[in-house]
Design a protein around this nucleic acid. Structure first.
Lengths: 151, 151
DNA sequence: GTGATAATTGGAATAATTCCAAGTCGCAGT
DNA sequence: ACTGCGACTTGGAATTATTCCAATTATCAC
């Protein structure tokens, strides 16, 4: 998917919700797509500033919130600490590597999701499931964990 | 399990880690056991104060942290917002009811855990898995969701 | 009991996020 | 093009959750 296609997708989604496409929203979104390392709002702010030096942190929070509303980005929270943002829309779990602090996306086979829904008692109706592994990723630091690639 | 048995278990665990059993730690722990609604530190503080009026919020944070260290309590974070605390030690998932804001424990069959570990790519070694459902629990407010009962 | 060590306390400090009021931008209708 | 209205952005103040710190207090070993 090219950059302009992503931009198209963004304007489309925004328009669907009656929202406008703005430079700030575009840049925040492309920053998320460019480096998929689950950055915090502060980190996004730092990255966006190199392209849009006058943007404010409040706007970054606003844009991120907007993108989450439009279902273009997922907000992720494991443990205490700042919220992180993830532009991977495929069903996936997160693996939090305790030694590096890094977070990897793990693709979820659909069977696992249906299986998980089966363990819910009567009357529980889940709209979404979040799964976080915690442990160590022993291999090379250049994992190509399934699920990060949208290219 | 009686109250004094819980208290025993607590001192034991604390001793194992070279820590002392104190009134504050005991009360914080019993408060968590008494009402298993995943309270925040502030809520625990409020409940503990009725029994131990001079306790400080800092101490509540300290005690909770200690209990988590001793593996008697789990700290739970879904989405932004304060950390919540859960004295259920059995493997379980959380179901977050979006309409009531309440959180229910869902027992996890061991098969699900082994299945989940199977989806990890080579080199990923998970020590723990956290699962959170989000949706609506349609039934009566008095669910006896499996997993809460230790009695 | 006495001393060493651990735990508690209150308040200040920090971190993350939200709120708010003012200013700016962009489109719709003329 | 011009104007007006609502949406968006901005900076700073406010809020919330949590941690830090220095001083006191309690507890255990001897």
């Amino acid at each position: 998917m090219t950059a302009s296609e992503n931009s198209e997708a963004l304007s489309q989604r925004l328009a669907d919700s009656g929202l406008r496409s703005t430079p700030q929203r575009e840049v925040v979104y492309t920053v998320l797509l460019k480096k998929r390392d689950h950055p915090t709002a502060d980190e996004v702010y730092a990255r966006v500033k190199s392209e849009l030096p006058t943007i404010s942190l409040a706007t970054v929070y606003n844009c991120l919130e907007t993108l989450v509303q439009c279902d273009l980005v997922r907000a992720v929270n494991f443990e205490r600490g700042p919220t992180r943002y993830c532009p991977n829309l495929r069903p996936h779990a997160h693996f939090h590597d305790e030694s590096t602090g890094r977070t990897h996306d793990i693709d979820l086979p659909p069977t696992v999701l249906t299986e998980l829904n089966r363990i819910l008692p009567q009357g529980f109706d889940a709209k979404s499931i979040e799964i976080t592994f915690r442990g160590q990723a022993k291999e090379s630091s250049e994992h190509r964990a399934a699920g990060s690639g949208h290219s």
